[in-house]
């Protein structure tokens, strides 16, 4: 197997691994090992390009593998991405609000205070149309936003046992 062939196979497995990221680590390792070993065998018969092409697209294979597990899985990666996006969007809003408040403080040559959900902003102005400081004080409650995004986008309730498997009310 040439270096290019090894690279081609590794690249396929990396992409597959990305798409099965929601599976438990042990199961991911099993899938990678099995596919890697068997594809090397197939490559002896039909070459690496053919063997890799025969596996299909990594995303489709990953979806089939996840579906074959027979239970809905949380999307940790998607949850983490949406948590980061929601936090970044909130920070963007806070910064925009702060700049607006600072502009107002400079224009009025006076201190201004305001608040955006979970954050207190104070713009301290000097007398000569200049700004001394902008103070931001965050409430720990703002962490609920990325946490909620992580839970909702990551569908973490899938970690709970299905309703039908839960113990019912005790019979007398």
């Amino acid at each position: 197997m040439t270096a290019l062939d090894r690279l081609r196979l590794s690249w396929f497995l990396v992409r597959l691994d990305y798409h099965i990221a929601d599976l438990p680590r042990r199961r991911r390792r099993e899938i990678r090992r099995e596919l890697g070993t068997d594809t090397r065998d197939a490559a002896r018969d039909i070459g690496v390009p053919g063997a890799v092409a025969d596996l299909g697209r990594p995303r489709v294979l990953a979806e089939d593998c996840i579906r074959a597990e027979g239970r809905p899985l949380p999307h940790y990666t998607r949850g983490a991405v949406w948590a980061a996006v929601s936090l970044a969007a909130y920070m963007y809003l806070v910064m925009s609000y702060s700049f607006g408040l600072a502009d107002g403080a400079i224009a009025a040559s006076t201190d201004l205070e305001g608040g955006l959900v979970g954050t207190e902003v104070a713009a301290l102005a000097a007398e000569a149309d200049s700004l001394i400081a902008v103070e931001l004080s965050y409430s720990p409650w703002i962490l609920l936003l990325p946490a909620a995004a992580f839970v909702l986008a990551g569908r973490l309730w899938r970690l709970l046992p299905p309703w039908r498997d839960r113990p019912g009310p005790r019979q007398p």
Partner: peptide, 24 residues
């Protein structure tokens, strides 16, 4: 093992079977 099953299926005339369908 997985790939061996693919080869055996092909030997039985199912040349169109894709390796990627066997593992799931």
């Amino acid at each position: 093992y997985g790939y061996e099953l693919v080869v055996r299926l092909r030997e039985h005339g199912l040349e169109g079977v894709a390796t990627g369908t066997v593992y799931p």
